[in-house]
Simulated scan of single mutants.
Amino acid sequence: MFRLPRLATTATVAAAALTLLAPTAATAAEPTLSDPRTVAHFNHSAGESPENIALEPDGSANVTLSFTRQVVRVDKHGSHRLLAVLPAVQNARPPVFSGAVVMGIVRAKDGTLYVNYATGTSETGIWRIGPHGGTPVQIAQLPPDSLPNGLALDEKLGVFYVADSQGGVVWRVPLRGGTATTWAAGTALQRLSSGFFGANGIKVHNGAVWVSNTDRQTLLRIPVRHDGIAGTIETKATGLADIDDFAFTGQDDTVLAALLGDEVALVRPNGTHVTVLTSPDGLSSPTAVAVLEKQDDKDPKEKDKEKDKKEVKTVYVTSSSYFDVPGDPNLLTARLDHDGDNGSGNGNGNGNG
């Protein structure tokens, strides 16, 4: 098994980078996390490492188990249901890993699931799974030597964005499937020569594609121009050691980021960050975060009238246990509180989950 080193570098990008800012204490006006609890455990000895997550409207979580090539659905009570198994591939040898791995996952509005599969062969690419599970179907190929990690879906534009951790690029693929094209590239997306992962997590948010770079410890923003072409890469936060995937807490640019060193960090729009969850809360090499607005029985019209009402959402975190022995791969939830109207979370994996 590989191990990620702790690195102390920053990305070089075309746009001016923000100054490295040390973690600081939370302020009263920003989101807070409380009541963390582990809702589901996975079998570490069987290689069940929950890697990425996409949420159902009812709060169930669709989770990729990277090494077993499985996609499972975990309900709110922690019960697992197998949805699909990606096909076994002979002589699979993707970058970094010793065998085929299923990585990022997103959910379309009709319930269809899409996952990234890395094999080192022609099976590397995006695969489609029906809303109720079944046999996965490959809809797009990516280069065999790529490592498709994070996956984002913009249904309005009808495209996927794929973070390639090995090639250090963002691929763009039509929603219907087909040919992948390089959408964004540059040093800021590349891995370090002594590292393992460049571009990793990816989300669509507020007219831009956001990407984390694990080796360079950065969170990046790439504007989507009116013609669909990538704008100049901007560095929004630095010093995020071993950052993996992330999610937005609402309509502004506040982020919850999974850090593989057993932390979840709240990253403010100004680039500073503070630790909000750690291993005593149940984390074990966390890899992904998703946010779902709480579903309750209050009339939406009444909720709209309460502008000063504190928002309550649920945060989900997958812990892969990649580096912890003995390991505890699990799915954790926590309560996200926010004063005022910060916008609705999006738990379908298309931008905030």
Rank of each mutant, 00 (worst) to 15 (best):
V102S: 08
M103K: 12
I105S: 06
V106Y: 02
A108C: 10
A108T: 12
K109E: 14
K109G: 14
K109N: 15
D110L: 14
G111K: 11
G111P: 10
T112L: 12
T112R: 15
L113P: 12
L113G: 10
L113K: 11
L113N: 07
Y114L: 06
V115R: 03
N116A: 11
N116K: 00
Y117R: 08
Y117P: 09
Y117M: 09
A118M: 05
A118V: 02
T119G: 05
G120L: 06
T121N: 04
T121L: 03
T121S: 12
T121E: 05
T124M: 03
T124Y: 03
G125K: 07
G125C: 07
G125R: 05
I126F: 09
I126Y: 10
I126H: 07
I126R: 08
W127H: 09
W127R: 04
R128F: 11
I129S: 14
I129C: 14
I129L: 14
G130Y: 13
G130C: 09
G130Q: 15
G130N: 15
G130M: 14
P131T: 14
P131K: 14
P131Y: 13
G133T: 13
G133N: 11
G134R: 09
T135Q: 15
T135M: 14
P136L: 09
P136G: 08
P136H: 06
Q138S: 10
Q138D: 09
I139R: 07
A140V: 02
A140K: 04
A140D: 08
Q141G: 15
Q141W: 00
Q141C: 07
L142D: 00
L142H: 02
L142P: 01
P143G: 02
P143Q: 06
P144D: 08
P144Q: 11
D145K: 14
D145E: 13
D145H: 14
S146H: 10
S146K: 10
L147G: 04
L147C: 06
P148C: 08
P148S: 09
P148I: 08
N149K: 07
G150F: 01
G150Q: 00
G150M: 00
G150I: 01
G150L: 00
L151G: 04
L151D: 08
A152S: 11
A152D: 03
A152M: 04
A152G: 04
A152L: 05
A152V: 03
L153Y: 10
D154N: 11
D154C: 02
D154S: 06
D154P: 05
D154K: 04
D154I: 01
L157E: 11
G158D: 04
V159E: 08
V159D: 09
V159N: 09
F160Q: 07
Y161F: 13
Y161K: 00
Y161E: 00
Y161R: 00
V162M: 01
V162Q: 03
